[in-house]
Amino acid sequence: MKLTINGESKEIKDGISLPELLVIENVEQPDMVSVQLNDEFVRQDEHKGITLKENDSINFLYFMGGGA
């Protein structure tokens, strides 16, 4: 199925869950990333229950704490 991940269109196998996608996409610290699915943020404790569908758009937003 076609997913848009961080703005890029990708072909990903059908029916995978959000935690599986985080593994496939090599997200280093899955519990430290803010996940946005079709413009809505997904709470950390809701990741498990989410199965992705054709044309879903997913963004991974990472903490950046530097500034000095």
């Binding site: 950046m64 704490g65 500034g67």
Partner: peptide, 10 residues
């Protein structure tokens, strides 16, 4: 808000 790390920023 601003954050930076390595080669990145937000």
């Amino acid at each position: 808000h601003g954050g930076i790390l390595r080669f990145g920023g937000q």
